[in-house]
Amino acid sequence: MIWLTWRQFRGPALMMAGVLTVFAAALAFTGPGLADDYAQGIAACTGQEGGCTRFLDRFLDSHQSAFLGVSGLLLLLPGLIGLFWGAPLVAREMETGTLRMALTQSVRRTRWFAVKIALVGLATMVAAGIGTLAVTWWASPLDKSAVSSYPRLEAIVFATRGIVPVGYAAFAFALGVTVGMLVRRALPAMAITLAAFALVQIAMPMFVRPNLAEPVKATATFSTANIDGVGEGGLLHVQAGVADAGAWILSSRTVDKDGRTVAVIDLPDADMAKCDAPRQPAKAMQCVADTANRLGYRQEATYHPSSRYWRFQWTETGIYLALALGLTGFSFWWTKRRL
């Protein structure tokens, strides 16, 4: 049975191995250079006036397309595996009628299915594992420089690093197998799998991931650090900010002294006049911040601190693996009863 599964799966497996090799080779080729540039840049700017903010921004800017491209590829990988390996696994055999040949050999159908799903499922997870390992290594200097624009816990970076891609791939594969079994046609099964997987992948960061742990609530007073500027007539432009640079900020709002959310902070003209100091913008800004604080305005934010990264990775991977196991269990039952 293992022989048959391997014989059938050999082509796609070799193709995937080829694609992964090319991908990993490209990353291995460019990775060390990227890491060196980063290390040199950091060494050069450390201790300098203004810190490394400018270097980091420049570093990310110059590699942004590669960064997004590589991440995007890994974002697609699990879905594609589910599409091309999962959906046709049983559906193609139903379509061509070979299912009837396979199931009338002297092999129990549950064993037939178990070997198939175990072997190809394992290959799926290995492929995704190699992919994420390569990308996580390659992108680590970029991830460090992208902490504020792309926090580690947020969509694209979170989903394409660490261990979650393995969970996604397992789920996409199990989903493909199950849909294929129910639809009995490979092509429609692939389309449905893709749509369903995309839906889950969109719903996950929007509705589920924020609730994986109780978000941290932070109340901050105003300072020159989180006020962007002052507009005409004393309107403050406030930037959301929490102390943790890589935090995933879920919400940020300004409240007045009664705890009501306000859209803008409107400081009285009299106070604004006191703070007017055209020659010393820093001092003026400090004065405005003090005034806002004195009037009881506060900045409230809810966020997940960056330290929760691995906890979220494991939890989310666990959720996807559980879903994959559930689907596999269902397809086992279906194989036994309805196929």
């Binding site: 059938q8 061509t96 009628g97 070979t98 009837r100 040949m101 009338t104």
Partner: peptide, 8 residues
């Protein structure tokens, strides 16, 4: 089986 399916 009908149409004698084989692995193409």
């Amino acid at each position: 089986a009908q149409d004698t399916p084989t692995y193409g």
